[in-house]
Design a protein around this nucleic acid. Sequence first.
DNA 1: ACACCATGGTGTATTTATAACACAATACTA
DNA 2: TAGTATTGTGTTATAAATACACCATGGTGT
Lengths: 253, 253
Amino acid sequence: MFTKQELIEFCDNARLNFVDHISIDCVIFGFHEGQLKVLVLKMKDEDAWYLPGGFVLKKEPIDTAANRILKDRTGLDKIFLQQFHVFGDPERSRPHNEMYRDLLPPEENWFSHRFLTIGYYALVDFVHANPTPDSHSEVCAWRDLGDLPKLELDHGHILKTALDTLRLQLNYQPIGYNLMPKEFTMPELQKLYETILDQKLDRRNFQRRMLGFGILNRLDTPRKGGAHKAPYLYSFDLDNYQKALNEGLKGGW
Amino acid sequence: MFTKQELIEFCDNARLNFVDHISIDCVIFGFHEGQLKVLVLKMKDEDAWYLPGGFVLKKEPIDTAANRILKDRTGLDKIFLQQFHVFGDPERSRPHNEMYRDLLPPEENWFSHRFLTIGYYALVDFVHANPTPDSHSEVCAWRDLGDLPKLELDHGHILKTALDTLRLQLNYQPIGYNLMPKEFTMPELQKLYETILDQKLDRRNFQRRMLGFGILNRLDTPRKGGAHKAPYLYSFDLDNYQKALNEGLKGGW
DNA sequence: ACACCATGGTGTATTTATAACACAATACTA
DNA sequence: TAGTATTGTGTTATAAATACACCATGGTGT
């Protein structure tokens, strides 16, 4: 919560630097120990959880703004990041709009403005991400998809829409490059797909299909150390991966 | 072009009623005589063509705003209309931003503001649409996709993105209900698909596949009058069509 | 009246993709 | 050294997509 003085400073700063009425919210997916994770923030002194978000600088392209937010929250750059929907219900942020209504008149009160938010989703490398709270938050943390806190505003809806979009994209886009470590085994990659789709897949058919896309390189050295048979390691063939991103994986008609 | 007085009135009105920094542009597709058409507007006294667009009222959901714009330009309501992308480059509307810079200071000049535009695309019934110019325009007309005027700003890019999206959607969504007349023949429907995809399709495979979706009803009376063999008429089965819209047509995995 | 032709309806092999299932190889454990 | 969980590599059955051939109809030109 802001004091009046803090609120005034925040609003002055926001009015000066940001495009009014527009915000960005990011659904940042990571993958670790067989679990799909999402980055969420907890407000200071409140039991209120949010998706990472922010505003667009006056001369900043929106994709750049989304990247900036992603980098601020994770330290990561040059990541798969994709706009997926604009949420523009006038009531979507009513609790925020009314939050400080007694402290400042609506004109000067950034919070009382209507905001449309552009939803972006990102797929990032869990291990290299360094979750960092923003100035309003005291916690920035990964949470399992199945163990999410209730999210404020329409952020639950935004998350669900992102997940639906991700599942759809899976059908005609390669994913995984940003979610997996550089080298990984086929079963590990399969686990990612199973987790995103929330569905078991057949080992052998998965492998055949995946290799059929031609975006994987099998490495010479199998993974050692673990119990059981040593699995082969794979890495993504970046050229073909990029090509598949642009051209799609199969497509009907 | 506005006179100074007109500009002031326009800006006062806009500031009062619309959400600043947000616009909507619609790519309205129609289909007639085997041609995919797009609705475009020509500015008064200028050889400048645009997509139909507008702004969002302060308390209006964005989908409602898009529908309002669609209705104003075509008279049609309850139409397939879908948000597909936000265009948020700060330079995207520079020519507009600079247009009236000598008449009004930037603060008061709506045109000098940066606008992000939300792209919507619609599929409408060509025959029942009644193209109607807005107050800045003198022409509102259908143009063949292959015979488009050069569009101002980034509207060419918006159109292309809409078309790409439409082609992609074709793979997992039924289309045609809003683009075809109530009753149509299979070859006519095929022509629609061929036009959108810009690609010949096999008659027999198209028919099998289409019927396989279970969204068509074959009517009892074949079309008469034309030369050659009388083709059957079909109509969409609205229940199944709606279901297919919600659930998708096939989907991988 | 008749062959002709453009168009529409229907059917059938061929190929390809998806799905279902079985067995051998490995590396640790007991 | 047998047991077990895991990985690798098939093979077969089914369904879908593709390619192609033939007949039917209603007009045209002679």
